[in-house]
Amino acid sequence: MTRLMMIRHAPTPWNRAGLLQGRTDIALDPAGEGWVATWRLPAEAADLLPVASPLARARRTAELLLGAPPPTDPRLAEMHYGAWEGQRLADLRARLGEAMTANEARGWDFTPPKGESPAMVLARLAPWLRERAGQEPGTLALCHNGIIRVVMARAAGWDFRGKPPAKLRDGTAHLFRLAPDGTPSVERLNIPLTDSPKPEGPAS
């Protein structure tokens, strides 16, 4: 089985404000870039082939962490939140009420207006996972929380209803194994990249 290590980009101003970013191309700010400077790849990342989402926050995180920009793949772009981008999830739940509850209860088929469901994200990731399953020694993917959650859900059999099997923490790496058909399994989650605390609060 082939190794796949996935790392979420460093925080942006929108992350710290609790706003859904999706495909909105928000860059890291100095606080985010400074935090990445404290990150160090774990031993399990040795010799892995790097690739990044084309969105600026992931590309810049990869460049700072690796010392050079890696190739990008559009299939690693964040889940599209459509009309909800730039809004807070808590505000959407409060405003939409039962309609939001019913949408979230759809699990894999939860879909923001004009956006993507987790099932749609998996559909575009599946060919990429199959490709990477055949590439040794494995892959290091710099991407997004929504992408990693879909891979974790597929690996753990979680249907996006109720609590996830694990909380994916910022400033960590997540190691999976890919079967020859691209099916992922969890090897180790939340491998620390740094001892430095995440920058919090509104960006200056």
Rank of each mutant, 00 (worst) to 15 (best):
K167W: 12
S117Y: 08
G82T: 03
S185V: 07
R106K: 14
R95K: 12
R75Y: 14
L19Q: 03
P69E: 07
R188A: 15
A77M: 09
F176I: 05
A94K: 12
G107C: 05
W108F: 08
P70H: 07
N145S: 14
L28S: 02
K114C: 14
T172D: 03
A77Y: 00
R57C: 09
G146C: 00
L49S: 09
E78P: 01
A27M: 06
T72G: 14
L64K: 09
E131W: 07
P74K: 08
L76D: 07
P113C: 13
E187R: 03
E44R: 14
D181N: 12
D47R: 11
N190A: 06
I191A: 06
D47H: 11
R177Q: 14
G32V: 04
A27D: 14
T139N: 05
H9P: 13
Q21R: 09
P202M: 12
P180D: 10
L122I: 04
I148C: 08
K114I: 10
L175F: 10
E187S: 04
A153C: 12
D195G: 12
D25Q: 07
R59W: 06
Q21Y: 06
I191F: 04
S196A: 15
A43L: 10
R169W: 11
R93D: 14
A62T: 09
Q21L: 05
S185Y: 05
F110W: 03
N103K: 03
T12S: 10
A99Q: 02
T183R: 14
T61V: 09
E98H: 06
A45R: 12
L189W: 05
